[in-house]
Amino acid sequence: MHPIRKKRLTIVLFVLAGLATAVGLTTYALRQNINLFYDPTQIAAGEAPLDTRIRAGGMVEEGSVKRDPDSLRVAFRVTDYNESVEVEYVGILPDLFTEGQGVVAMGRMRPDGRFVADQVLAKHDENYMPPEVSDSLKKAEAMGKTRSDSGSAY
């Protein structure tokens, strides 16, 4: 390669490396602001501020959804399989809201550790499958469970 071009290429690469470092450090410093939500572990560790509007996100715990029969009030637990947070919400939930699926709730943390949400968004994962596959997966899982249950009964 021509020496002048080599020199230009080196400058370009240096500029790129410098830029990448600068942006990397900036985004690292701002990571708390870039994160869309706090997960239950962060909330349990006291990282989430009290009484300011924040988002909490995680999985809806299986069997934790309690609906009020007379109103749109719902309560459920959001978990990251490590810690969990009690969430209260009044309103219409998105179609994809189900137990075991991801959710991001916006609202305030109360001093008693409950999260009062004014907006709940569903977060789906990266897995796609036809309904039949999901059904047979669930069936297989259920069978596996009963087998292990009966095993422990002996």
Binding site: F37, E126, N127, Y128
Partner: peptide, 18 residues
């Protein structure tokens, strides 16, 4: 970061999640 958008379904090193 924590995002609402789900992670990639296709990864170079793994089988696609569909």
């Amino acid at each position: 970061w924590n995002t609402l958008h789900q992670p990639a379904t296709f990864k170079l090193t793994e089988k696609p999640a569909m």
